[in-house]
Amino acid sequence: MHLGILTGGGDVPGLNAAIKAVVNEAHRMGWRVTAFRRGWAGPVNTDAADPSATPNSHMALTPDLVRAVDRTGGTFIHTSRTNPSRMKPDEIPDWVKVDREPDAHGRIDITSHVLGVLNTMEMDLLIAIGGDDTLSYAARIHTEGMKTMCIPKTMDNDVFGTDYCIGFSTCVTRSVEMINRLRTSAGSHERNMIVELFGRNCGLTALAGGYLADADRTLIAEVPFDLQRLADLLTEDRARKSSNYTVSVISEGARIINEEIIQSGEEDAYGHKKLGGIGERVAAGIKQLTGTNIMVQNLGYLLRSGGPDAVDLIVAKNYGTMCVQLIAEGKSGLMVGIRDGCYATQPADISTKGEHRVDVDGLYDIDQYRPKIARVEGIPMYLR
């Protein structure tokens, strides 16, 4: 059997461990594995008539090649946010036969080319590792005749259909460590510290980071907040402390009541603009309202960089191994995941069927702007 594999979207710690597990388990069964480089840009930039003419778009994977890759973070086969169903004309290689007209936004669907590449390379099944966007496209091509399997990864842990996505534990672990490190500067200068974390639509990273680091206030993407109310709370927090400083955590997708989410730049292939800047906006507002100097730190890519923790290693390894085992059983069109604490599967398109968001009623105090676990018994381990 010939398996394909790719990683799409943002990088997270644990991707290499999942790739290694797929390769080793497939090799044990006598199968071969080919990686597409740079996510869906791999098949897009492969010449369907002669794949060997575009060697930079794909590579054969062997146990020897992946032997040590799990010791580092990121994805050694690279990634991108390419979406073959919404390509700009100038992004399409010359050898691709365009058989559709541009949509209203000038984007072109070249899925027929992707399917042609997979057919020419005689791939039996493609394993896609990614978030909602990457996996939704994998689910689509499964319905169009190419067998696929999906492995969920996101720093936000927000893929619908699984309790856990590769990358989340390392992200939260680093968040807590860095938030606590930043206390020394905030305390030394007696300031309010605003720490901005990942979270476009789901505030789980900020919720968990703020909860575990015992931040004074935590602002999540799901709950718009009042700036004056926040300023008053932080003033009370500082007055109550002999150290005379505060630390607040905020999701990049959080917003002030009656204001829009702060985003910039051009939409990517999946319709997303770049988030970031809410920390600076809040800092400016708090300073104006209180007269207190503010420190702002956007942790951003620091949370993606470096190797995975033990949780992301074991989950990634088991997701990769599980995928190949299921394929050996003749199964496809599935997303592996964790449900109720156990490894399980869902249909590949499950990520398109709903949203995973913070359980605000059970996990958040909307008046105090901080995590509040209404009742621990019965809730998922990772606060889902």
Rank of each mutant, 00 (worst) to 15 (best):
V360T: 06
I92G: 10
A186P: 02
P102I: 03
P380W: 06
K274M: 05
A348L: 07
V114H: 00
K20S: 13
S136F: 00
V22Y: 09
T162H: 02
V336G: 06
R107H: 06
D99A: 10
V249M: 09
G291R: 01
R229W: 11
N258Q: 09
T345P: 05
P308H: 06
G30L: 09
M146C: 12
S188I: 13
I179E: 09
R304Q: 08
R339G: 14
H105K: 15
A269W: 00
T72M: 14
E25G: 10
L3T: 02
A213F: 12
I220A: 11
M178I: 13
C323Y: 00
P13V: 07
E280V: 11
T148F: 03
C165H: 07
A231S: 15
I256W: 00
D90H: 12
D226A: 08
T62C: 11
D349R: 04
G199Y: 07
K147W: 00
G4L: 05
V96T: 00
N157L: 09
G271R: 03
V336R: 07
I256T: 05
P371M: 02
G131D: 04
A310V: 14
K97Y: 09
N258H: 11
R183T: 13
Q228S: 15
T82N: 06
I166M: 09
H189F: 14
I19R: 09
T246I: 08
V22T: 11
A310I: 13
L299D: 03
S136W: 03
H189R: 12
T173Q: 13
I108P: 02
V159P: 02
R255L: 12
G187K: 14
M123E: 04
T143Q: 15
V33S: 11
K317P: 01
G131Q: 04
I194A: 01
I373V: 10
Y211C: 12
G210L: 05
